[in-house]
Design a binder for these strands. Structure first.
Length: 484
RNA sequence: GGGGAGCUACGCUAACCUGGUAGACUGCUAGCUUUGGGAGCUAGUAAUCGGAGUUCAAAUCUCCGGCUCCCCA
């Protein structure tokens, strides 16, 4: 007999019908994250914080391998520092939260809660950098930043506080600074592919959409299931903009004083929003195996008479595999197997192992994959190898389907009518563009579509093409899309 | 940026229109029976978003604030 479905443990909205509602239900009901008492700020519960630790640890390791050092600067930034670089403060000022008093005493100078740390960090860099021998100086910090968004907040995708890395480097030459971009974007590409199982499109941002204070920005752009784009990790070439504003100079080996060339780069917990939206389904969360706190759950199926025997058998399996995977042996007596199945599916555990009297008799186990519901019978001869392959398959399936979705929804357009049609349907409109901001502005005004970025891998296609709007010779290929 | 809907226990919801005992389901606690896709019975536990107003009396009516969601830009 089918029991009443409990409301708080189910996803009632459908991904295909009501995406926003579904998205929130998946996050909250799977206990991945929760709302907090602060508007627009979410709580990372153990499941999501664990996932973030995996992302962070991997990226951090790669940074360190490349010679980047970790530091930590204060959360609060004096107002005078924030105002040193004009474009930068203009870009952030509407979203800055301020500390104006302590206890009952009003502060002489307001302190900003960092929306990003250029201002506070570069004040110190100007003291630390003296000689060409001090360069390059490549620093990173893992922290949170606060941006008091006007638009209504969405868990992970747009929260008023989020976690990220912020890398800040200073070089003697422009060439060295530019070369760093490839390395950093490569690391971000790898963590997206190998950990989050997400495909993204790397490219350069347009001048209009670049970071406030940068001379050029580069990003990896994602496409959400609803056909809207989301900006992923980014890398910014800041040139001398900040070094001039913050007076970061060094004496080169000819004895001349010169400004350093700087870069900044970041990946944030926003990626989890993309990951959830991309991989999850109407049963709940689907987690890529490398981010799952529990990779395999073992559910023994027993009754009163064979309970000890079956749990003995499932314990044998647990002991066999626990050294190799993150395994939870679910011997909670108060829940039925069916209840457990639903719960672990909701929470996104990649593999569920079921063992009952049948499996015990045959000395095997049934392993069921969360993302496809496909199952396989695995003998106890060499379960670790088989389960490893299964987890790899799950990861690869998720990545491939993410990639397929982006490719299937990227449409080459050659004229404005096609562009409008693609924007209306959703997805990337891969468009030749003359490079003028007038055309970019008009497209944004008329279609709501933003220039997400200019994908590296298609730039040569601009040759011989004409701007999708004005018809002048194209300089770039831009992906236009509505965005989140 | 513009419009709309909503907020009662962790969750979902009844009572609201027509002011007067907050009632189910789920959860949680305990006990007994169960256990191959959300088990059953019994007992217990737990709620009106915040503030102000109107009133003998406010979940209900009015105003202000907070939060959440949706649609459009």
């Amino acid at each position: 007999m089918k029991a009443e479905v409990t409301e708080n443990r189910t996803i009632s909205a459908k991904k295909e019908d009501n995406f926003s509602e579904w998205y929130v239900q998946v996050i909250i009901n799977s206990e991945f994250a929760d709302y907090s008492a602060v508007s627009g700020c979410i709580v990372f519960r153990p499941s999501s914080y664990f996932a973030w630790e995996q992302v962070r640890d991997y990226v951090d390791g790669r940074f360190k391998d490349d010679g980047i050092e970790n530091v930590y600067f204060p959360t609060l930034i004096p107002e005078r520092l924030l105002q040193k670089e004009g474009e930068h403060i203009i870009g952030f000022s509407p979203e800055v939260a301020w500390v104006t008093q302590t206890g009952d005493t009003k502060l002489d100078e307001r302190l900003a809660v960092r929306p990003t740390s250029e201002a506070i960090m570069y004040d110190n860099l100007s003291k630390w950098i003296r000689s060409w021998r001090d360069l390059p100086m490549r620093l990173n910090q893992w922290n949170s930043v606060v941006r008091w968004e006007f638009k209504h907040p969405t868990p992970f995708l747009r929260t008023r506080e989020f976690l990220w890395n912020e890398g800040h480097s200073a070089f003697a030459s422009e060439e060295e600074a530019e070369a760093e971009g490839k390395v950093i974007l490569g690391i971000y590409h790898d963590v997206l592919k190998d950990y989050l199982a997400l495909y993204g499109i790397p490219g350069e941002k347009t001048q209009k959409e670049k970071f406030a204070g940068a001379i050029a920005s580069f990003s990896i752009e994602h496409l959400m299931p609803d056909g809207k784009a989301v900006q992923g990790p980014a890398f910014h070439l800041d040139g001398n903009n900040f070094s001039k504003a913050f007076d970061i100079k060094f004496i080169d080996n000819n004895g001349e004083k010169r400004f350093v060339f700087q870069n900044t780069w970041a990946i944030s917990t926003r990626e989890f929003g993309v990951m959830i939206a991309t991989h999850s389904d109407n049963k709940g969360l689907v987690l890529p195996p490398k981010l799952a706190k529990i990779q395999i759950v073992i559910v023994p199926i027993y009754n009163d008479k064979n309970r000890d025997e079956i749990i003995g058998y499932s314990t044998e399996i647990y002991n066999m595999i626990k050294g190799e995977f993150r395994v939870y042996h679910d011997i909670r007596d108060e829940y039925s197997p069916g209840w457990k199945f639903n719960e672990w599916e909701l929470k996104g555990v990649p593999i569920r192992v079921e063992v009952g009297k049948r499996e015990m008799g045959e000395r095997n186990m049934v392993a069921k994959m969360r993302h496809t519901s496909g199952s396989e019978s695995i003998s106890l001869d060499n379960p670790i190898e088989v389960l490893k392959l299964m987890l790899e398959k799950i990861h690869n399936d998720l990545y491939e389907s993410s990639k397929r979705f982006v490719i299937d929804n990227t449409h080459v357009v050659e004229n404005y009518t096609d562009l409008k049609e693609v924007i209306k349907r959703g997805g990337f409109a891969q468009s030749p563009w003359c490079g003028s901001q007038d055309c970019e502005d008009r497209i944004k005004d008329e279609t709501i579509a933003k220039a997400t970025n200019m994908p590296f891998h298609v730039q040569e296609l601009a040759k011989g093409k004409r701007c999708v709007l004005c018809g002048k010779p194209a300089k770039h290929i831009v992906n236009f899309s509505r965005s989140h």
